[in-house]
């Protein structure tokens, strides 16, 4: 089985001066290619820290994390940026679109930071338009975020996460700010992307959302407390 990510005894400690917060306490995990993994847990369980590490936004204090064969702990800040740009697509709970940009421009933001800064070609532009159409915003490409509903904004974020055709999609509570019906739509999109062969890693605290994933892990006190859905 081909692995997308491999975590070996991963620790993450935050030194806050007077106290050291141990957010992760030795997590080991294999994430196979094409997985749809839901990371669950209450707040403070370490699930956000886990996603930050998985997404290459942070480096572990101790342990090893292999992403596409590279040990993330040893990468420089610039190398991590390159990985985030081309290997990973991010979807956030609060959408995180750039306010002064239109839908189309927001979708294209990751194009600005491709390694080596290749020029933005007409093909790139076409792809932005295609993705906008795919997420159902083909008619609203020149709208700005404040003119869109939450669900629409999240769909822009999904289109944005796909622009550099990443192998992995990291979704942090993607349905957290949406009503259940819109949430369903977004989850449906994620499932579709998973079906295309992309690995999806999603953090959520809602069982109903986690159930839609292929695999679930439950985090507690910086450790994986179990797999599957924990009822109650």
């Amino acid at each position: 089985m081909e692995l997308t990510a491999k975590l070996v005894d991963l620790h993450k400690h935050y030194d806050l001066g007077s106290v050291v917060v141990k957010a992760l306490n030795g997590v080991s995990l294999d994430i196979p290619k094409g997985d749809f993994l839901a990371i669950m847990g209450s707040s403070g369980s370490g699930k956000s820290t886990m996603l930050n590490l998985l997404g290459g936004l942070d480096r572990p204090t101790k342990g090893e994390y292999f992403l596409s064969g590279k040990n993330v702990a040893t990468l420089t800040d610039d190398e991590l940026s390159a990985i985030r740009n081309s290997l990973i697509g991010f979807i956030f709970q609060s959408f995180n679109l750039i306010a002064q940009y239109t839908v189309l421009e927001n979708i294209g933001v990751p194009l600005l930071y491709r390694p080596g800064y290749p020029a933005i070609t007409p093909e790139d532009q076409d792809r932005c338009n295609e993705l906008a159409k795919m997420v159902g915003l083909g008619e609203r490409t020149d709208h700005r975020p404040y003119q869109l509903s939450g669900g629409q904004q999240q769909r822009v974020a999904i289109a944005r996460s796909l622009i550099n055709d990443p192998a992995i999609i990291m979704a942090d509570e993607p349905t957290g700010n949406l009503d259940s019906k819109t949430g369903e739509e977004i989850l449906g999109m994620l499932k579709m992307l998973n079906a295309e062969g992309r690995t999806i890693i999603m953090v959520t605290h809602e069982d109903e959302v986690a159930e839609q994933a292929k695999n679930q892990i439950f985090m507690k006190d910086g450790l994986i407390a179990g797999t599957g859905i924990f009822k109650g």
């Binding site: 997404g55 936004l57 800040d77 610039d78 940026s81 390159a82 985030r84 740009n85 081309s86 991010f90 995180n96 679109l97 750039i98 306010a99 933001v109 990751p110 600005l112 930071y113 491709r114 944005r160 550099n164």
Partner: peptide
């Protein structure tokens, strides 16, 4: 700050 965070997450390097 948030915009900076978004750009960084989407692959912007410090120099960018």
């Amino acid at each position: 700050t948030r915009e900076i965070g978004i750009r960084r997450a989407l692959g912007a390097r410090r120099i960018d």
